[in-house]
């Protein structure tokens, strides 16, 4: 069974965000991690392979050269191969990224494609779905459970106010929600092994795309930082007194209850 995982490198969740002199998000000096939802996807891919007793897990990312770190981490967790497409210094939106991913994937063999349901940086929960649409295969988003048998995937997915069980024929794209699994940590042995695993690096030209074919549909106009929230009132007094005063303030001052 050939399993592909689309994986994005994102800013660390603790990262402080500042703007550079051009008013764009400063990327220098920010520590980078594998998108947490994609960790679930990698873990699920490894479990699928282990359960099936055979298979191959390939992790794919569109990003700069530093993205190799996130791909290596996936290899250290146990993935077999990595593919990095470095599009160079071009503006991308989700349409562009999905177009690149789908183009690379269309030249590969695959039974199932896993991804995160959302990237936590500028992510917008659409790249994986777009990839499915381009490849003309079904998508199931936000899965918390997955079983694969007889050319079908049966997944439990989150819906508002509950969950549903959905069956799709393979190949399909499935995106991970928290709760799907607990990702493993790479072992020392895994980290050593990862260094020798294949990492294929491609450019846009290698993929067979020209810049014009991935021109973004969405254009960023400007970036800004939020006004820092001002710390408010600490209400003094004994619990009973403070609680009474809080109730009054919520009603009379904030007018929110």
């Amino acid at each position: 069974m050939k399993i592909l995982v689309c994986l994005k490198q994102t800013f660390d969740t603790e990262a402080k965000i500042v703007l550079d002199e051009n008013g764009k998000i400063e990327r220098q000096g920010v520590s980078l991690i594998m998108n947490p939802y994609d960790e679930f996807a990698v873990e699920e891919a490894l479990r699928l392979k282990e359960n099936q007793g055979e298979g191959e897990v390939t992790v794919i990312s569109v990003g700069g050269q530093q993205t190799q770190d996130a791909l290596r981490q996936a290899l250290a967790m146990g993935a077999d191969k990595a593919v990095l497409v470095d599009p160079g210094d071009v503006e991308l939106d989700e349409y562009s990224t999905a177009t690149i991913l789908a183009k690379v994937i269309s030249g590969m063999e695959y039974d199932i494609i896993l991804g995160g349901f959302r990237a936590i940086d500028d992510g917008s929960a659409q790249v994986a779905g777009r990839v499915a649409e381009i490849l003309n295969i079904p998508v199931v988003n936000m899965i918390t459970k997955l079983e694969v048998a007889d050319g079908k995937a049966v997944a439990t997915r989150e819906i508002e106010g509950g969950s549903e069980v959905v069956e799709v024929p393979l190949p399909a794209v499935l995106t991970a929600q928290k709760g799907l699994n607990e990702p493993r940590y790479p072992s020392m042995k895994g980290i050593m092994k990862a260094k020798k695993k294949p990492m294929q690096k491609m450019t846009l030209a290698d993929v067979g795309l020209e810049e014009g074919q991935i021109a973004p549909k969405v254009k960023a106009i400007s970036f800004s930082l939020p006004e820092p929230r001002k710390a408010g009132k600490i209400i003094p007094g004994e619990p009973a007194e403070a609680a009474r005063e809080l109730a009054r303030l919520l009603r009379e001052e904030a007018k929110v209850v």
Partner: peptide, 23 residues
Amino acid sequence: CTITGRDLAAQVAQRLETGLMTD
């Protein structure tokens, strides 16, 4: 930007090859 809205928007946007700004 609900679970359903998000799911539908991505597929429709790609099928129409248009841009989508979320959340």
